[in-house]
């Protein structure tokens, strides 16, 4: 599948934003006494990441001015549900931010709970856009959903930990939680790649044409000499040559490096710890972009079979 940059940015940025929001919500419900300013900053950061991602997602549309129409078909379409949930999430999150700003010290458990649940529900809907497609075998599996949720939480945990470091409010437990989430996300992705490598193409040329009833089928001539929409959008093959190396880069930058970094940082004096955790942020961003690029570029669409690929 063609890895569109707008969609890579959208799913990674908004995933991080929603993960951050979900963690903030969990911390608030667990009775965290972090300073109000820090929580407002985190809410603001989540809002910026989510909003930038959502705006980016409209960039790949043929008619962005009609994007509002995508809110109408929530009864059947996961893409529509994602849009509805994303907008719905703004309501409690903005109310929560207003509450933190206007009434410092006051708890708002219901707003926190609603924000967190809607944030996770939006990530779930995003993952289901892919997981519901039978045509792309690499996506049509429950692990895709698990990975999207774990990646959102892990990538949201790191900026939250960095914020706590900046405010001198990071504890060993915060570091441990962040490292665990990063490790879980990394293991999830590793297992996903392993099962992917062990699976055979589900749709072969013989099965797609139904001609396998006669014998072995191979493509003799395409309908067209040049690449068409189908091959450009769904026949993307560039990545597969570099997939191994890119996977290692993604694992090291997004999961192993940051997880080790936050654990080491918890043993360091505050200034060095803050610097180390802050340095892990750009590594995480790079690792996530590579991971998401592979998610698209490595996925084979059933229509490839008609072209003998």
């Amino acid at each position: 599948m063609n890895p569109a940059y707008s969609i890579i940015f959208f799913t990674t940025a908004s995933g991080t934003g929603y993960g951050l929001l979900a963690l903030l919500s969990a911390y608030a419900l667990a009775g965290d006494t972090a300073p109000n300013g820090m929580r407002l900053l985190a809410l603001g950061l989540a809002g910026v990441l989510v909003t930038a991602g959502l705006l980016s997602s409209t960039l790949h549309l043929g008619h962005p001015e009609r994007a509002w129409r995508a809110l109408s078909q929530w009864r059947s379409s996961w893409l529509s549900r994602e849009g509805v949930l994303a907008l719905a999430c703004y309501v409690p999150a903005l109310c929560w931010a207003w509450r933190l700003w206007s009434a410092p010290g006051a708890g708002a458990p219901w707003l926190a709970l609603a924000s967190g649940l809607l944030a996770l529900a939006t990530v779930y809907a995003t993952s289901m856009i892919y997981a519901s497609l039978k045509t792309v075998d690499a996506w049509h599996r429950p692990s895709v959903t698990v990975n999207y949720l774990l990646l959102a939480l892990a990538s949201g945990a790191l900026p939250w930990l960095a914020l706590r470091h900046w405010h001198g409010a990071a504890s060993g437990a915060d570091a441990l939680l962040t490292a665990l989430l990063l490790a879980a996300a990394g293991v999830g992705k590793w297992r996903y790649w392993s099962t992917l490598d062990a699976s055979e193409p589900v749709v072969t040329t013989g099965a797609a044409t139904g001609l396998d009833r006669l014998g072995a089928v191979s493509s003799l001539a395409w309908p067209h000499t040049e690449r068409n929409y189908l091959l450009k959008e769904m026949g993307y093959e560039v990545a597969r040559r570099h997939a191994r190396r890119l996977r290692r880069i993604a694992l090291a930058c997004a999961f192993v490096g940051p997880a080790a970094g936050v654990l080491v940082a918890s043993l360091l004096p505050p200034l060095a710890a803050t610097a180390l955790v802050t340095l892990a942020l750009p590594a995480l961003a790079l690792g996530l972009v590579v991971e998401r690029w592979l998610f698209f570029a490595e996925a084979r669409h059933a229509v490839s079979a008609f072209y003998g690929r």
């Binding site: 599948m1 790949h60 549309l61 043929g62 008619h63 962005p64 009609r66 994007a67 129409r69 995508a70 379409s77 893409l79 856009i129 497609l133 039978k134 045509t135 792309v136 749709v203 797609a208 929409y229 189908l230 959008e233 769904m234 669409h301 059933a302 229509v303 008609f306």
Partner: peptide, 16 residues
């Protein structure tokens, strides 16, 4: 007149 050009339908179709 309603299509936003998101291309998801083309992803969902196994027949191209």
């Amino acid at each position: 007149d309603k299509c936003i050009g998101c291309k998801l339908c083309s992803w969902a179709c196994p027949y191209g």
